[in-house]
Design a binder for these strands. Structure first.
Lengths: 317, 317
DNA sequence: ATGAAAGCGCTAACAT
DNA sequence: ATGTTAGCGCTTTCAT
């Protein structure tokens, strides 16, 4: 590829003039501008953006840390980020950690590397003290709430949403309720869900919190566990509509009725939940992603809460 | 951030020695190596990868062009790409075009810009002659078959799959079959589907090809159109399980039975199809993505066909 | 084994 | 308005 010197030589001007044309600066005569443009066209020249980024210290590239890349929740957030990025001429690099803390640090180092202008963390493997230092190299926005003022937040109020669901169930006469989670109690999501449970129902009885659920198959297994236990709960709050769909399927195949024998509430308002008429908590994760993008590019320290909404359908009576 | 000169000064060596340590070259004495390492640790130094990439001319970053970022099919391919990229220490930048040809060219230009080592095109907005020139700046792999030898291909045999589905339907006594597609006949997918239809059933009767379907809601609308027409087809081949789910829902709500009144066949083998017991064509798009990644990094001109499999469930009798 | 120096391709301050 | 030049931070000959 030709470089800026070749263009300059061919157009009979200096490299600065070429640079000025490239960056639409004023103070370039029409003739020279035309000559430069001609040279650019003839040589089919495009500036090397590595060089530009090196000197400018910015890249207009944002990183998005996600644990997994085929999970409805994270895909939804990513989608929101991408949506905005296209409109604002940013580029997005997707960084899957599989919850490997080392990998996550590696990705955060890309800020220090000058490869990324900012980072959106949809879910993290490291604790905040390990992450905070990287805010010195670029904006970091998390999709969860944290007090740390260095971190921007586009977050959902999982505790409030869960509280509302559990209260709704309790008010409808459910005393024995189970719930599923993706990760163990190391994750904030799980901890908030557990807290809401305790605040409504008291201590969590054994077998009522089922961890490790992300897919429909996980839901089927969870339901098996729930249904075949000696005392059967009358309601299940699933951590996603796909998991809920798995539960739905097993429950029906076991000859039980929904909602009469078991009430099911899902999350994320996915198409599958619409088909099965699942009551679901829509956390509006697409908006979380959009908001996260806005924060990382404009208002790095902002804290924005995205409201949830509960969509009542027949799976909850 | 400190730079390589500071490290060199602090360690009492030259920048070349620092560079050697950084790149694990041999021929550096243990003492100097240790001194450099100490300086690196003390200053918490990380090389600027823009500078490294500029001089090396490579980035270990791959671009993935997708039309939309919340589509099951493209998400699946992306997932396959990401999966491999993590294992091979590459990074992936997601580039949504919304089928805007200008945007797509902008993205392809990133190859020329030296921002990307290679590009995977899951679906394109431009014709090949507009794309081919960019192969001069990096490997390009498409997720569709093309004769152009400059382009690597990780592709599915949509024609064969569709032919098998239509033949299966015909053999089961279906003479009036409808199908849905995402885009009009500008897309290869649609054209191949139409061709297979013609090869089995002859000319496509009016109202039997329904375009513009991607979501469940689109499926519902398509089904409405299909069911309410004067002559009702006895089978529908949907261009995705979500669309199929929408059709499924409308058909049932219209008081018709599946498969007795209408047979439904979907595509992509998604969870929603599992729940609804939809017969589906699994194109194994995850593998397409994995294969595309392998081609773009290793064997840029390879042509790899990923086999499909049809999963028969109760929606087809 | 180590260092000096010449770039990689570009921007921007400075001079004219 | 235009050109000269000093970097941006790094790698890599080429000497020694």
């Amino acid at each position: 590829m030709a470089n800026i010197h070749e263009i300059a030589r061919r157009a009979g001007v200096s490299v600065s003039t070429v640079s000025r044309v490239l960056n639409q600066h004023p103070y370039v005569s029409d003739e020279k501008r035309a000559a430069v443009q001609r040279a650019i066209d003839e040589l089919d020249y495009t500036p090397n953006r590595n060089a530009v980024d090196l000197i400018r210290g910015r890249t207009r590239n944002i990183g998005v840390i996600i644990p997994y890349n085929n999970n409805p929740a994270f895909d939804r957030m990513l989608s929101g980020v991408l949506n905005r990025s296209v409109e604002e001429d940013y580029t997005v690099t997707v960084l899957p950690t599989r919850y490997d803390p080392g990998k996550e640090i590696e990705y955060l180092t890309m800020l220090k590397n000058k490869l990324l202008d900012g980072m959106i963390i949809t879910s993290r493997a490291n604790d905040w003290p390990s992450i905070i230092p990287f805010t010195g190299y670029g904006h970091i926005v998390a999709c969860e709430y944290t007090e740390f003022e260095e971190i921007g937040c586009a977050y959902i109020d999982r505790y409030a949403a869960t509280l509302e669901v559990f209260r709704f169930l309790k008010n409808n006469g459910h005393a024995d309720v189970a719930f599923t989670t993706a990760r163990g109690d190391a994750s904030i999501s799980t901890r908030l869900t557990m807290q809401a449970y305790r605040d409504v129902f008291g201590e969590i009885p054994p077998g009522r919190c089922i961890e490790g659920c992300t897919t429909m198959v996980d839901g089927i297994e969870a339901a098996c566990q729930i249904v075949e236990g000696k005392e059967r709960p009358t309601a299940v709050y699933a951590n996603g509509d796909e998991v809920a769909a798995g539960i739905h399927q097993y429950v029906l195949s076991a000859g039980l009725r929904i909602p009469d024998d078991i009430v099911i509430v899902g999350q994320e308002n996915q198409p599958i939940g619409q088909v099965l008429q699942l009551t679901t908590v829509d956390h509006q994760l697409f908006r979380v992603g959009e908001e996260a993008f806005g924060l990382v590019t404009r208002e790095p320290r902002g804290k924005v809460r995205i409201p949830y909404r509960i969509i009542y359908r027949s799976s909850s009576g």
